[in-house]
């Protein structure tokens, strides 16, 4: 089990040693900051609501972008062979990779925490800033990112090429992000299923501050399913 920690730590280390990570994180924060603050002053209301509707959209792109290299790069350079020759189980490798990628996304999100205090500072003295939805929002983002990183990791296990991995991961994320948007076109009994499958709909629940076990279970299960298939893909490369 320690192996998971070691792999995750190594993954984050080598991430932070490469310029790509800083570029991707920088662009993520730039976009998020720009789009959020450019409208904040127009609506004249100190709320993080817009932030939490923007962030999932950006994570659809940046989740797979940050996780595309996790396995694809090792396949390309051949280090995957050494990694799979260590006396560790395949699922430990996958979990280590997952937490490594997830850790980087968490670092990205940590950089947005100052936004909260900036916005709270804008609130007039006689009113108090409501931290409830913010905490809920961040919690939701964590769950949402975990599923996007898992999708990105699955995509990364399918190919040697990081760009291909990104595109596949992006398509997976977009699919689960947009699926509830087509629900309106469906008969009612179907619409329910589509909405349940949507990453965004569950995020909205959590961001509202409603912690429902169904939402948590949803994220846990799609993350688990993606990681399960990633492990299968690794096993297939041994055949």
């Amino acid at each position: 089990m320690n192996a998971i920690v070691y792999i995750a730590r190594r993954e984050m280390q080598s991430y932070l040693n490469s310029p790509v990570a800083y570029v991707v994180l920088g662009v993520f924060l730039l976009f998020l900051g720009y789009f959020y603050f450019s409208t904040l002053f127009l609506i004249g209301f100190a709320s993080m609501r817009n932030f939490f509707s923007l962030a999932p959209m950006l994570l659809v792109v940046f989740g797979p972008a940050l996780s595309m290299r996790l396995i694809a790069e090792e396949r390309k350079s051949g280090t995957i062979e050494s990694l799979l020759n260590f006396p560790v189980r395949d699922f430990e490798v996958v979990l280590g990779k997952f937490f490594g990628g997830f850790g980087i996304v968490v670092i990205g999100l940590l950089f947005t925490v100052p936004y909260v205090f900036s916005v709270a500072w804008l609130v007039p003295k006689e009113m108090s800033f409501d931290y409830g939805p913010v905490i809920g929002g961040y919690l939701g983002l964590l769950f949402l990112s975990s599923s996007f990183v898992a999708f990105g990791l699955l995509a990364s296990s399918l190919t040697k090429n990081q760009i291909v991995a990104f595109v596949i991961g992006f398509v997976l994320c977009v699919f689960f992000f947009l699926i509830d948007k087509v629900a309106v076109l469906m008969p009612y009994s179907w619409a329910f299923i589509f909405e349940f499958l949507s990453v965004d709909a569950h995020f909205a629940n959590i961001a509202r501050g409603v912690l429902d076990s169904r939402d948590l279970l949803y994220y846990l299960s799609i993350t688990t399913v993606a990681l399960f298939f990633t492990t299968r893909m690794l096993r297939r490369s041994r055949a």
């Binding site: 190594r10 280390q13 080598s14 490469s18 350079s77 280090t79 062979e81 050494s82 020759n85």
Partner: peptide, 16 residues
């Protein structure tokens, strides 16, 4: 656990 292995082309993590 009992094997030390040097793969062909010796792939290493170059950034480490």
């Amino acid at each position: 656990k009992h094997i030390g292995y040097l793969p062909e082309n010796n792939p290493l993590y170059e950034e480490m």
